[in-house]
Design a binder for these strands. Structure first.
Length: 609
RNA sequence: GGUCCCGUAGCUCAGCUGGAUAGAGCAGCGGACUUCUAAUCCGCAGGUCGCAGGUUCGAAUCCUGCCGGGAUCGCCA
């Protein structure tokens, strides 16, 4: 465990055939039509041949009364063409009217071109969902590129608490998302096993060892970890060493106890992560950077020195309040300012050991040397001030070739029915991640942790998150999926041959789906590929959670219409073809819900309770 | 004092990296529903997007400066 392992080669990962029909991203399709229309105008000399089209967007308008697809092309092109936007709009519109997937083209406002798609277009979305299966909505942006996602990286000094939980879930969902988007993802955990904290851990564990040996230890001295979780470690030390450690000097026992305790803590942490269905490909030990006669930190500093990015100098004291033990001294500094940081950064402490930053640089150098050009680090909010220097380090070490994105997860406020849960580190009464998962389950924990933007604080209510009500988004989304399956269970009585949700719907007559609410649901489903692409590009898995909530709401709404209007119910005992068409829609909804939930790492249950 | 994040309806928050009249859910008000397929449903009201400038056809979104809240600030990790 204390040595770096190579990233696992993903032998049985599906190889996506990129040459096959592109997934059903209808906005791409219509973007192509708009660009073709612009090309046409260029050929006619209406637009200069070199007119840039990067700013042209083809998107669903926010307001559905503006149609299904809108483009700003005319307004963007007005300046280079030296023509009023509405004039250009009418020329582009004339071209678009020729496309048979488009029902109407209208020019609105300052020059928007709004399109309503042909009724015959929408059923293709449903067919695409069934045809493409797990590939539906897959963004084609990864193209097999390697990306390294580092998350959790909790210190191996105790069990994980709720604060770690959010970053863990976020990182895991982000890794899932990037994998879904076609990246070759390596999930990584950096073990901070080299600093003073692990020596404290060792002394704390040694105390528990003496306790296990029958000695009176009294109060745990301040400065050591008081938690009961070290008692089993003391017992285990006794089992392994007997009384041998008692006669050793601290210098002798400390390395043994330290390694033993770190192993024990990592075992605990891995168990905690497993309870949340989180796994890592690589556990990278900080200690390994300077072990085995090779000092990779020194190598890193030498490498930067050769690039003239290291110097001996003094730093100005921080403005505002000055630390008590401030001492002006000459030290080894990295020219982080050249790469956008606010200050140059120290690499060697006054006692001669490396700073945490120096080791972290060496770690990221190792990632770069392993071939990663894209790296993502997921950190807690208290590390925000560290971002610039780490990005500077990656820029310097890679010759500005590699990119690091740092995602910050804000604090979690743990509540119980609206009341804050008291947590005191001193009293050792902090709530562990395991406590939370044991109480509410991994699915609820994961979904709630993702139901908020990562850089906004999050309220996590242990009571509300398990409520079976509309107010609980976890339940609401899972219920939608379960309800879709329930429809198939119920339809068995009237149409047993239609009761399989996995059946082939390719011959369903989807032109029967002409209620506005049905069409609304299809449009929600059609938005999925675009949503996933934006979530993957922005590294924001929370967008998926919000989308799923929205989709669930649309689906429940359609279901509810059947209460008052029996002719809108999915199951029509007297009309098998209509039932089949509606079941195709229900099954497609279930598939998209399941697809999104899978990326979030939440189980798509088929039945509640 | 420097840096970063946040500021959107009474509350909790979205807002698709610059689009049109800024959206949900709670809470509030007004109705419907009494078992229909499974954990109610529909409607109404609610806003100077912290403030002030700037960039442009167009800004909640980008830039600058303030105001307010949080995090952090050579050797902790």
């Amino acid at each position: 465990m204390h040595s770096a392992m190579l990233p696992r080669k993903s032998a049985n990962r599906t190889n996506w055939n990129l040459a096959k029909a592109t997934p059903m991203n209808l906005f791409r399709h219509f973007e192509a039509l708009v660009l073709a229309a612009i090309d046409h105008l260029k050929n006619d000399g209406v637009l200069p041949a070199e007119t840039p089209v990067e700013k042209v967007t083809v998107e669903p308008p926010r307001d559905p009364t503006h149609g299904d697809i809108a483009t700003n092309a005319a307004m963007v092109l007005a300046k280079p063409a030296k023509k009023p936007p509405r004039e250009i709009a009418s020329l582009i519109a004339a071209q678009l009217k020729k496309a048979h997937d488009i029902k109407t083209v209208e020019i609105a406002g300052p020059g928007f071109i709004n399109m309503v798609l042909a009724d015959s277009f929408w059923p293709q979305v449903i067919h695409a969902i069934h045809r493409e299966g797990d590939d539906f909505g897959r963004p084609q942006i990864g193209q097999g590129q390697p990306v390294n996602v580092e998350y959790v990286s909790a210190n191996p000094t105790g069990p994980m608490h709720v604060g770690h939980c959010r970053g863990a879930v976020f990182g895991d969902a982000l890794a899932n998302l990037l994998e879904f988007a076609g990246y070759e993802v390596t999930r990584e955990y950096y073990i901070n096993d080299a600093g003073a904290q692990v020596d404290v851990l060792a002394r704390s564990a040694y105390l528990r060892y003496r306790e296990a040996m029958g000695q009176e230890i009294g109060e745990i001295p301040s400065g050591l970890y008081p938690g009961d979780y070290l008692k089993p470690v003391g017992e285990a030390l006794k089992a392994k060493y007997g009384d041998v450690l008692l006669d050793m000097t601290e210098q002798e026992w400390l390395p043994r106890v330290r390694d033993f305790a770190i192993d024990a803590m990592m075992t605990t942490i891995k168990g905690d992560l497993a309870a949340l269905n989180i796994r890592h490909d690589v556990f990278f030990s900080e200690r390994s950077l300077t072990a085995g006669g090779v000092d990779q930190v020194a190598q890193t500093i030498d490498e930067l020195r050769a690039k003239h990015l290291i110097y001996e100098g003094r730093l100005p004291p921080p403005k505002g309040k000055r630390p008590d033990d401030w001492e002006d001294r000459k030290q080894t500094l990295f020219r982080a300012e050249e790469f956008g940081d606010d200050s140059d950064r120290a690499l060697i402490k006054s006692d001669g050991s490396y700073t945490y930053f120096a080791a972290d640089m060496a770690y990221h150098r190792d990632k770069i040397r392993r071939g990663f050009k894209e790296m993502i680090d997921v950190w807690g909010a208290d590390h925000g001030g560290y971002i610039k220097r780490m990005k500077a380090a990656v820029a310097a070490l890679s010759g500005r070739k590699a990119n690091l994105d740092v995602k910050i997860c804000q604090l979690v406020n743990l509540l119980r029915d609206g009341e804050p849960v008291k947590m005191s580190k001193r009293a050792g009464s902090f709530v562990t991640l395991r406590d939370v998962v044991d109480e509410v389950g991994a699915d609820a924990t994961r979904f709630m942790m993702l139901f908020r933007k990562n850089d906004a604080p999050l309220d996590f209510d242990l009571v509300k998150v398990v409520e079976q009500s509309r107010d609980n988004p976890v339940f609401y989304v899972q219920y939608a999926h379960a309800r879709a399956h329930s429809v198939f269970r119920k339809v068995r009585d009237d149409h047993p041959e239609l009761a399989d949700i996995e059946q082939d719907f390719s011959d369903a007559d989807l032109s029967r789906l002409n209620d506005a609410a049905e069409l609304g649901l299809i449009k929600s489903l059609a938005a999925y590929p675009r949503l996933m692409e934006s979530a993957a590009k922005s590294h924001e898995p929370h967008r998926i959670a919000f989308y799923l909530h929205d989709l669930a709401s649309t689906f429940h709404g359609l279901w509810n219409r059947g209460i008052d209007l029996p002719h809108l119910r999915f199951n029509q005992p007297e009309d098998k073809e209509l039932t089949k068409a509606r079941l195709a829609l229900v099954a497609a909804t279930a598939k998209v819900l399941a697809s999104g939930l899978k990326v979030l790492g939440v189980t798509a249950v088929r039945e509640l309770r």
